[in-house]
Design a binder for these strands. Structure first.
Lengths: 329, 329
DNA sequence: CTGAAAGCGCTTACAG
DNA sequence: CTGAAAGCGCTTACAG
């Protein structure tokens, strides 16, 4: 492997000059610059990144720690972060915390040891220690320690779902919430409840029941079943809004078991817009999280280098087949 | 950040000695060693990895390039590779090739530039250039260039599926293959066809039709529809084996549309055992790829440091609800 | 077994 | 605008 010295010799300049054309910003005069560039090309020179890292104490690598890369939402995030990073010539180092706060600490520390230029963490849970790092750390999707959070505007997203359902004529609605120990679950619920309250009037009241569960399929199926065991069309909810697509898909399953037609007899909504949402039968109406923007903003913050305020990015409702007008009764 | 020098001073030894206890292998006498260890702990010393990398020209990082981390199979692989690497104190640098051979080249080169200690590549397609690297490169799942391949034994896996179906009494079987330009698709088809041929006898003949498609949902749905448009129970296949779970799930969809009961009227099998396979209704019988072993073997090869032969790891059939005895007729 | 010293390949004040 | 030189924090022959 040729070094900067070889290039300098071949171009007949000093290594300092070569280094300066490498970093572009310095003003090396045109003729010299060209000689250097030519020498680099001829030698097929590639800078030794480790040497550069030693000097500058930072490498063109962004650290990313997610609870589980196998979760489709996180892998989407990872993909977009990797693309954003690549655009700027950076790589990403990936770590899984396996939903374990301790492992999360270890992983972040390991990343920091490697002198990454910043780390993006999707926290295992709300909380998280402070790290003594002189590079930016940003929380994505789920708040981590004292670091600024980039996330979907869950409150607003849920409100959009509420608008959609009420607009369709639904007046008896059930909401399946996520675990209220999680900030995101609380925000989604609060956004939904608040909008329903605002829309409900004495002349045209809306009945809302809230059921807390986990974010997964089974939880949706179980809670859905308990909601739908009321077989009276007169009193049973005409719409179920779930705090996650997985829950909503669980509801779809149990509705099928119960021979309840969707959306004819019941409207169902999710939240996230995972890939499966568009594949399931019927296709799920949901709120799409703005993954590209989330990734873009998180990466931008790493490059901005300085802490900034939290950012809530609005999602978009995508209306598919699982919602429809209130059943005639 | 304290450096090795600070530790040396505090322990009253030379930096060489500190370095030697750091690398463990050298024989530093017990009393000295303890003083050094104590000094390191007291100072909360952490080695500067960039400096080490500069000297040794390699870092404790494995490069991984996948076509698309969003693909559940690849994300499973990534997760397991990351875990294996972590066990040995290594991190992984992740890159997506976006199914583009050129991007793949670029990504591998970038990883190599970063002096990773090896790279694992899940190729975009068969083919792939040779890289001039002095670290191990191994192909995983899909063959990349001249590098040794670690993959599921697709041939054997398909044969297991064939055994299962024939054992259930099926004698009219359709096979949906993947694109025959891909080695894995060919192996799966060949394994299936060969076993069926071996099992078919003049007294008890098996009819097999093969249909080539892509590996995705839509392809499965389309081909399934064309197979099942023959509505005669007498001549229509009683089982469809697909070369991927996605195809099989597509078949499930179209069977539902066509009001064909599974497994009462038709058995369906997939290949891969993606998470969705266990979620779909009815749950899919499929061949589970040995992801942990694949990841483990790939990582082990990086550490072994030397090229080795290809390795085919046997998968395991997982029987669920989508297969059953041949319909009585 | 331990120390002194060279050197990995860069970047960056400091001169000129 | 360019060069000479110091130094980033390690590792590793080389002596002793």
């Amino acid at each position: 492997m040729p070094t900067i010295k070889d290039v300098a010799r071949k171009a007949g300049v000093s290594v300092g000059t070569v280094s300066r054309v490498l970093s572009k910003n310095e003003s090396v005069k045109q003729p010299l610059k060209e000689r250097v560039l030519a020498a680099m090309k001829e030698l097929d020179y590639k800078p030794n990144l480790a040497a550069r890292a030693l000097r500058t104490n930072s490498i063109d690598v962004i650290g990313l720690v997610v609870p589980d890369i196998t979760n489709p939402f996180f892998s989407q995030l990872a993909k977009n972060i990797e693309m954003e990073a690549a655009k700027r010539g950076h790589s990403v180092m990936l770590a899984n915390s396996h939903d374990d706060a301790e492992a999360e600490q270890t992983q972040i520390a390991a990343l920091l040891d490697r002198a990454v230029c910043g780390v993006i963490v999707v926290a295992t849970s709300d909380g998280g220690q402070t790290h003594k790092a002189d590079v930016p750390i940003v929380s994505l999707d789920r708040r981590f320690g004292p670091y600024p959070l980039v996330a979907t505007d869950h409150f607003d997203g849920s409100a959009k779902i509420a608008d959609h359902l009420v607009g369709l004529g639904h007046r008896r609605i059930a909401y399946i919430a996520g675990p209220q120990s999680m900030e995101v679950a609380r925000q989604r619920r609060e956004g939904f409840v608040a909008r329903i309250k605002a829309l409900s009037t004495p002349e045209d009241p809306i009945t809302l029941t809230v059921h807390e569960g986990h974010f997964d399929y089974d939880s949706g199926e179980d809670i859905g079943r308990s909601i739908l065991k009321d077989t009276s069309q007169e009193t049973r909810p005409t719409a179920i809004a779930a705090a996650s697509d997985q829950q909503a898909i669980g509801v779809l399953r149990c509705a099928r078991d119960l021979k309840i037609a969707i959306p004819a007899d019941l409207s169902v909504t999710g939240f996230d817009d995972i890939a499966l949402a568009a594949l399931v039968v019927p296709r799920l109406t949901t709120l799409r999280q703005p993954i590209e923007q989330l990734a873009g903003s998180a990466v931008a913050r790493i490059f901005a280098g300085e802490a900034a305020a939290d950012e809530a990015i609005a999602g978009e409702i995508v209306v598919r087949e699982s919602t429809g007008n209130i059943p005639n009764s």
